[in-house]
Amino acid sequence: MLELTPLTPAHIPLLQKYLRAYPRQSCDYAICNLMTWGKIYGNSFTIWKEHLVIVNPKYDYVMYPVGPGLSAKELRELVDIYREGHPLTQLVLIPEDWQIKIPDITQYFQLREDRDWADYVYLIENLVKLSGKKLAKKKNLISQFIRTYPEYQVIPITSDKKDVIIRFSEKWRRERNMEGIYLNAEFQAIKNTMEMWDEIPVEGIIICYKNRISAFSIFSEQTVDMVTEHFEKFDPEMKGSAQVINWETAKYLQDRYIWLNREQDMGLKGLRQAKSSYMPAFLVKFIFGKPLD
């Protein structure tokens, strides 16, 4: 069995050490997600053959190890060790360039791509400029919002805004009748994020009009040139608020990063349409590896 240790904020320096040396574009490797969603899933880790290995025990997932690289045979050895107590274990988040780095992995695993869990990545510059006919409607909605709410402000999220963010998130979910296992878990992840705000590397902004919150976004660094937006909520009664929070987030980040990862659509039709409408530059694939018998 692997000797696993539950992930806590005390392990953030260790995570940063590995992920800065061996960056991954998948949002599942973002430290904020590892901490906040990890609290829900019970994420644990170990160091195995000088690689950081993160395990999601709720779904019996072994995340592809972070480090200089293991052979396909070693990856199978790792998964088999965890399978001793968890026979349904799968290796997840296999790099897209596996055919170059580990071409023989198909001798040990059956690979499967899941489109529902692919990350949407955008050029931040494009989200700021919103050029072209396909994005013209979004630009017009932003202009309408500015005309209707000319005195709106953009303020940074701090830990003292915890209750405001949680209440707004609950209101958003209730009014849009958004329920389900994932969405309930997302609400808990937002609560976890706000409760851990001063312990984890995370930022965010609020769109505020006359002391009323219109929208917010929460994000954190993914790699040196990519930032990941973890949560984005808006007031549907304020026309254009959805477009404004996206635009203001991009403006807030444009001097520090090139790419914005807006995470997955989970197979939700409306969310897929919304994320696709902003014309992503590329998707980060989610590839499973089921051990072959």
Rank of each mutant, 00 (worst) to 15 (best):
M1L: 06
Q273M: 12
D163P: 04
M226Y: 02
E199C: 10
M238D: 10
Y61E: 03
T249P: 06
N261I: 01
G270L: 06
I157T: 01
R76L: 14
K233Q: 09
D235K: 08
E175W: 00
V154K: 02
K162A: 14
G270E: 14
L271I: 13
R167N: 15
T46Q: 04
A72H: 04
S276R: 12
M178S: 11
R176V: 00
K285E: 07
P95H: 12
Q254F: 02
E195P: 08
A250V: 00
E125L: 08
K73W: 07
G180K: 05
E170Y: 07
L52I: 01
E221S: 11
E96S: 15
D28W: 02
F168T: 03
E221M: 07
Y209Q: 14
I157M: 01
I105A: 09
Q153C: 01
Q16K: 15
P236A: 06
D119K: 04
L111Q: 10
K129D: 11
P87Y: 04
Q110F: 13
I206S: 10
R83W: 03
Q243S: 07
N126R: 14
R272E: 13
P57C: 00
A242H: 05
I47R: 02
Y29G: 02
F187V: 09
Q273E: 15
Q107I: 07
E263R: 11
L111T: 10
E175V: 02
S159V: 07
H11Q: 15
N261D: 05
E237C: 09
Q153F: 00
D293T: 10
E84W: 05
Y29V: 02
G204F: 03
A21N: 10
P13H: 04
K129V: 12
H230A: 13
G204A: 09
I165K: 08
I200R: 06
A250C: 01
F288G: 07
T158S: 11
T223P: 00
N43F: 13
P201N: 08
M178V: 13
T249G: 08
R115V: 15
N33Y: 05
G204C: 08
R20H: 14
E199N: 12
N211Q: 15
M266K: 11
Y41H: 14
P57S: 01
K251V: 02
W247K: 12
I12A: 05
M266R: 11
L75Y: 03
P23V: 04
L268R: 12
G42K: 12
F216I: 04
I258G: 03
K139N: 01
I155H: 03
K133R: 15
K251Q: 10
T249A: 09
G270N: 15
P68S: 08
T148D: 08
G67Y: 00
K251G: 03
V227A: 13
I12L: 03
K17N: 13
F216M: 09
K161Y: 13
D28M: 04
V202Q: 09
